[in-house]
């Protein structure tokens, strides 16, 4: 026993090194496996405070862009107001409340931290569980999809950006509805993503619009993702691989919307029930 201690003492440098590296690996693995707010990340109050102050300053540089975008969005929304329909569509006005019920609600949030130049990129937003934000909610801007909420603390949440090797979004081609998974592959730059598994009978034209599909529990249908840039059929495959030009400028994100799917629990519960029922009856 004494020799063992002596051995460790003599080689303390290597053992300390191994210990610290093991600790690092533990931190890395834990952070990747469990979708929960870890103690040391940018949702942490100290670093989030500093980053928010920095984002506040940085925001001024994008004020003009942000204003233009907001003004454009305002105009678009005003166009959808009941007031603008009142004259021509008077009949529909009353039935609107009963035939349609709300499925999604939107919470606006500010980006306090954003990365775009890594293989796995994340954002931090200034809304958290106190504002009703939960894991896996969708994050969008007026120009398109941004990502998915990953971790939540009281007042902040981190978002797995679309520019992340782990992100996959179920998307479709707007004109004919053929769908496939969209991901950010190796070799895609900041404004690109790759859409897989589009059947070859679909006649693609560069410029075709890609939107989110209805099969996602997270994203509402028909949220803009981007446009077709080019497509190839890899040898031996019966599918097109499509390069998509993203409509969101990830470098200039400042205000985003977090989307809450009110019926998510209901749908999830139902699907789970059918699955388990199916298993037991067989």
């Amino acid at each position: 026993m004494r020799n063992l201690f002596l051995f460790i003492w003599r080689n303390y440098f290597i053992f300390l090194f191994l210990l610290l590296e093991a600790l690092c690996v533990y931190l890395i693995v834990q952070n990747n496996n469990f979708q929960r707010a870890s103690f040391v990340n940018s949702s942490n109050s100290i670093s989030a405070g500093i980053l928010e102050a920095s984002a506040n300053v940085k925001e001024y540089f994008y004020l003009k862009d942000a204003n233009e975008k907001l003004a454009k969005e305002n105009a678009e929304l005003r166009g959808k107001l009941m007031v603008s329909f009142a004259v021509s569509l008077n009949d529909i006005h009353t039935s609107y409340d009963t035939t349609f019920h709300q499925k999604y609600t939107f919470t606006s949030a500010k980006v306090v931290n954003n990365s775009t130049n890594r293989r796995n990129n994340y954002l931090t937003l200034n809304k958290g569980s106190k504002q009703g934000i939960k894991n896996n909610m969708a994050v969008i801007t007026s120009s398109g999809v941004v990502g998915q909420v990953k971790d939540v603390t009281d007042n902040f949440c981190t978002v797995m950006s679309l520019l992340n090797s782990k992100t996959t979004i179920s998307s479709k081609i707007k004109k004919d509805g053929s769908y496939g998974p969209l991901s950010w592959d190796e070799g895609d730059d900041l404004s690109m993503a790759t859409l897989h598994d589009i059947p070859t009978h679909v006649r693609l034209i560069p410029g075709d619009t890609i939107v989110t599909s209805a099969y996602s529990l997270t994203f509402p249908e028909n949220i803009m993702i981007g446009t077709v840039e080019s497509y190839v059929q890899k040898s031996g495959q019966y599918f097109y691989t499509v390069k998509v030009k993203l409509s969101t400028d990830f470098k200039k994100l400042s205000h985003v919307y977090i989307v809450t799917n009110i019926m998510k629990d209901e749908q999830e519960g139902l699907e789970k029930k059918s699955e388990t029922d199916g298993k037991t009856s067989q």
Partner: peptide, 16 residues
């Protein structure tokens, strides 16, 4: 790591 949201990655590289 706290600022980059990378939990342990920079620490591992620095310790190395």
């Amino acid at each position: 790591d706290m600022f980059y949201d990378t939990m342990g990655m920079h620490a591992a590289a620095c310790v190395f």
